[in-house]
Amino acid sequence: MEGGSTLSTSLGRITITGDAVAQIVGHTAAQCYGVVGMAARGGRVGRLLARDRLKQGISVGRSPEGLTIELHVVVEYGLNLAEVAATIRSQVAYEVERLTGLTVSAVEVHIEDVRRGS
């Protein structure tokens, strides 16, 4: 997502890059209950796209309706996956909209793996 998304305010314009959004998504996802890690989706592609571990497994795109966010996560074994995914979706959309003022049109959550904790 080169160039980023722009918010106009009376004080001037604010440009928020896809990278910045991905950072927010990464922070938020790490705090979502049930998420124990991010999956490196797409083999090297996914990992190559990530600047660091925080953005691993996250891609941010744009559509006319707003930001589209994809996350690939690892969830703790023994949790209700549908509920965990639903929570991630709403929490990520909410935090991104709250912190950036941009509209989120879609959040796709892929549970790539479940971790069987100790």
Binding site: C32, Y33, G34, E76, G78, L79, N80, E83, V84, A86, T87, Q91
Partner: peptide, 18 residues
């Protein structure tokens, strides 16, 4: 608790129950 977990709080509670 696992099957019936609803929402974020329900999921956390299911883990507490477990």
């Amino acid at each position: 608790a696992l099957m019936g977990a609803r929402g974020n709080s329900g999921v956390i509670f299911s883990q507490i129950v477990r």
